[in-house]
Design a protein around this nucleic acid. Structure first.
Lengths: 165, 165
DNA sequence: TTGGAATGTCAACAAAGCTGACGTATTATG
DNA sequence: CATAATACGTCAGCTTTGTTGACATTCCAA
């Protein structure tokens, strides 16, 4: 009994291949967060602080509502994180100019230092991985991740992406 | 002033590209867990239960220590999850045959039903993404994820992968 | 027979999510 | 102008999932 189909084109969608994809995501995400986690343990901060710092660095002057939408948490949860960062002078919260109800968020010098420390570690891992596999594979990696996002998250991802070109 | 280098080969490692990779991982992981999370909310289970169920389904008869190593949590944390699953008759814990200190873990019929429900949902999302981008991109996706793992996790990933062929 | 391994369990705690309720500016709107 | 809606902050309490530390049991192996 020989193969009826083209092989590669159909076989890559078997349940087994999909399960391997699932496990790859699981293990890779652990590696992805491992270095920043290590840096933050001991400090009074965690992964939630890292995420906030990352997106404030990425979109300086963003307001709380926007950050809320990107992070996908409640304002109470974000506020707890943001409060410690503001108290510790890593983040500055400025009253809005056009709309004074809004707060615009910026990293302080000190905040930018921590941000760089964290993102250097995370980028180093990604850079090593990217270098190992080559640009072709990286392109595929990005395509799959983008296709995997929820539609509204994909919109936000491209928003941030396109606003920093 | 014209380009001195090949472009693609060096540009794909700019900090901007790496940051986009980081954000792609963040948003994609959210999508990756969204469907199982939705299914589990309302039941008394969470993501931790899903992970345990997944790897027990994947390696039936695995012992606690092995599961501990794969999941990367403490035995106390795993035990809490495992206990509820055993109490609810989703997981069976059999005393080891060769080494009676060990417990071998299996899904019950009922457990297998839930496992299928969860993994069908998760696989459906991955399948859709994979179909959208094509086998070439999927291959790149897998390569990058594997390169991103910690060395010991990569070993475990391949162990599981190769044991179910 | 004795030390170490595998497992289970108790207690206490922390990080980070959640809901609900409420207060206070500020802006928008009828 | 009065009122509604928005943006933000905060209090209280709860859940999930992780952590340490301590201790008991069972069993394998030297």
């Amino acid at each position: 009994m020989h193969d009826m189909q083209g092989g590669e084109d159909l076989l890559f969608l078997t349940d087994e291949q999909l399960r391997q994809g699932i496990e790859a995501m699981f293990f890779a995400y652990r590696g992805f967060t491992a270095d920043p986690d290590r840096i933050l343990e001991g400090m009074a901060y965690g992964r939630a602080h890292h995420r906030a710092i990352h997106f404030i660095a990425r979109a300086p002057g963003t307001n709380v509502n926007n950050l809320l939408a990107i992070l996908g948490v409640t304002k109470q949860s974000l506020n707890r994180v943001l409060r410690t960062l503001v108290d510790d002078h890593l983040v500055e919260s400025r009253v809005g100019t056009s709309d004074k109800r809004e707060r615009h968020l910026f990293l302080t010098e000190e905040g930018a230092v921590l941000e760089r420390l964290l993102s250097d570690a995370q980028r180093a891992r990604l850079r090593a991985a990217f270098r190992t596999v080559g640009p072709e594979a990286v392109s595929g990696f990005r395509k799959v991740l983008e296709a995997m996002m929820d539609a509204d998250m994909r919109r936000k991802y491209f928003d941030i992406r396109d606003s920093s070109l």
